[in-house]
Design a protein around this nucleic acid. Structure first.
Lengths: 148, 148
DNA sequence: GTCAGAATGACATCATGTTGTCAATTTTAA
DNA sequence: TTAAAATTGACAACATGATGTCATTCTGAC
């Protein structure tokens, strides 16, 4: 069997996604470093901050497209480092609700201060319509994968 | 400072890229498993196969957006496993040229057999024009990052 | 209400991938 | 031509992340 023209484009998108993810992680490490965290921990902080309410570990993992255990590991470390708080979950005895401490919040905002001009600057050189299409398509790809 | 509307879209694309990359790696592991490799090794095989000529380790790393050392590590393992060959590089005494063995080639093609219908099928449910825009935009983002 | 199946945390093992360092080689600039 | 800078392979240390297992808790079908 051969790739259809669309299948070929799709495959190229997959490869570019891998590549971009690697590059973004490296850049993210630089951006987050001055606040004392790395990309991985910044992403955890962001997942909680952006949800605007407490989340359980599995919820964070699903948001991030990662395994429950990988997130649990980081959450435990960040809890020890006083970046996150655990609180009882009225709906589940074992699955604690996770929120940011003041320190965690401050770190997230400090990283954001640097990420914002970076993102604004890069976005300036790109077409808004194309960005919108790209964002929607990335989401649709995930939905299509889920459906299989 | 606040995110511009475009900066906000850009940030969302970044997060979706991370998420999609994680999900694709998991799916890729499943697809590649029957041929005895995983996503990481499949990607190495693909980088060499698709270039249609021998590559050095740093060249593979740049193609994949990963560190030279991570690629070197896998290449050494895959050489031991008889998936790759090393040959002298007329342009560089230390940097060997890497190519696929018959076994490596066969494995790549076997994985491809399964990846192709998967990609074709998913692409069928997506708009060709949107896929083209997405692919171009992902590449442009990388160029814009490089320029900084 | 009960019980099978799913979800969750804890723990372990392993693969992937980054960063840092050093010596050897290549490239570049003067 | 030569010397400084960049590239490369080898090696090490460490962080990230997937997978597997077990006991506990929750959910849903009956």
């Amino acid at each position: 069997m051969k790739l259809s023209p669309d299948g070929n484009m799709f495959t190229e998108i997959v490869l570019e996604t891998f590549k971009l993810s690697g590059l973004l992680t490296t850049v993210g490490d630089s951006i987050a470093a001055s606040a004392g965290v790395n990309s991985a921990r910044w992403k955890i902080l962001g997942a909680i901050y952006l949800s605007s309410h407490s989340l359980t570990v599995p919820q964070i993992a699903r948001t991030m497209g990662q395994s429950r255990q990988a997130v649990q590991r980081l959450v435990d470390i960040m809890h020890k480092d006083n970046l996150l708080t655990f609180s009882d979950n009225p709906n589940h005895k074992k699955a604690k609700l996770i929120a940011l401490t003041e320190k965690g919040s401050a770190i997230y905002l400090k990283v954001d201060e640097q990420q914002i001009p970076w993102a604004n600057n890069l976005a300036d050189n790109l077409d808004a319509k194309d960005l919108a299409t790209t964002l929607q398509t990335l989401k649709k790809i995930q939905q299509a994968m889920d459906a299989k």
